[in-house]
Design a protein around this nucleic acid. Sequence first.
DNA 1: GCCGTTTTCGGCCCGACTGTTTTCAGTCG
Length: 559
Amino acid sequence: MENKAIAKAFKLCSQLMELFNENPFRTKAMASASFKIDKLPFPAVDASLEELSEQPGIGKSTADKVLSLIHNGSFPELDKLIAKTPTGIMEMLSIKGLGPKKIQIIWHDLGIETVGELLYACNENRLVEAKGFGLKTQEEIRKAIEFANAAQGLFLYAKAEKVAMPFMQRLATTFPDAMHTFTGEFRRKCEIISSVDILTSAPIAEVAQMLANDDSYTLLEQFDASIQFTDVYAGKYQLLFTSAKEFAIDLLISTGSDAHLQQLKALQDPLPNGQTETEIYQALGLKYIAPELREGLREVQWAKEDKLPELINFADLKGTLHNHSTYSDGVHSLAQMASYCKDQLGLEYLGICDHSKTAVYANGLSIERLAEQWKEIDLLNEQLAPFKIFKGIESDILADGSLDYPDEILQQFDFVVASVHSNLRMDEEKATQRLIKAIENPYTTMLGHPTGRLLLSRAGYPLDFKKVIDACAAHAVVIEINANPLRLDLDWRWQQYALEKGVILSVNPDAHRTEGLLDMHYGIYAARKGGLSAPHCLNALTKDEIETYFSNRRKNNTK
DNA sequence: GCCGTTTTCGGCCCGACTGTTTTCAGTCG
């Protein structure tokens, strides 16, 4: 069991305790244990009871519960709480804007026990009657439920990948003579997946038998040439069966989006067959189009004119910018983050961007603590040379669009990532103006996660993307592709516009621990979907090049 | 429930923002 899952269980426990009005200090202790476990720099499964209870915020009682979670999947107190909570009430806890206190009122005063009933009550204007609720709250809750409903049955790419890879492995081992490959949304590296699609030339009857013999799979539907099933994680799969002869054309047809296929069919219908996808594209008079691009934007036109971008690869990245350390809310120290980059990833540099002072919840850096961090960076840079740590900051964009430190501090950073973390519910005009003001700040090097969205969990604030991107172009501000699989923000659908305007993009992991740096893989997928090539990616610059880039930017500031 | 003593129990307690109030409670990052 991973620390994240353990932390989640404690969070749930604390929410349920609050829901049932248990001792607020015990409730709080539970919430703080959740927070602490999430931030442990080692896996809890490897720790002993003593080691766990030595951690600040974790006592003997909590350590016992952690061990129980690891060995039994739960602990008695949590089980009891869950047993007396209707499932609908549990579901409400995961809806943004609803906490234990509001749910208490919904449950006890309004007698509502399911999310469906709650949505109905919003539509009937019945929530406004409840104490502490008004029109705006009702509307926010209605929107949040609709967002959650739309997310039903969908998975983050990263989550789908976790179950898809072992299944593919198994298929390949069981049917070594057949061809198998991912296709559909998964092969296109879509940020959100409705089903993991696999094309195979294995015999359908035998594959069906393999699935039927394994309890961990549940058959949904079987047709002549396809099987749909789910696994224990509720991940949905679609197996498409074909012959070796038709493999290439079926791969091409099952990979592309509807819009992409329509554009191909406009060239020739029905599509020609071939030995490989490259051959088929050639027969259509096109260059080979990478699966990530097959979304029906402009790739077919590009392929016709031989203007397809040379898509960026993970290996093109020379460094990483926008990362956290224990100076704010990261799990690993500066030194740990740096040596991971240097030794494990073979990178030339690390940009450290801990949170700025306004982000109190994330232990944001006061000016005094900044000085401390800079001293340590200087020391590490001596020890690790030629590897370099760049002094950055993730500066909060305040409500009015200004940055978080006075100019004399801002000018001392190598680079500044400006991001919004609070006040997320602005309308489009205000939110756009706020970002533009931050972009116009001469010390802003880069705009962090532009919309603040959390995929399948929270919509971003609305933005006039054209205006924001145009402002970045005008002020030579880089836009981040936040590589966290929950964000992938800037969205790939807007990257082409940014690239046309000459905006440089940066694939940033926003890592809060060493393993988080690997999220850059997801960022690369999103960047490839957007058509990014290495020359337009900031962290594909070598250390020397980016040093020059930063110093030129700073010279321009002082003019 | 955790911590730090006052060694056996009492004190703990993000803060900004928002929407609801008419002085504050709930939620979030």
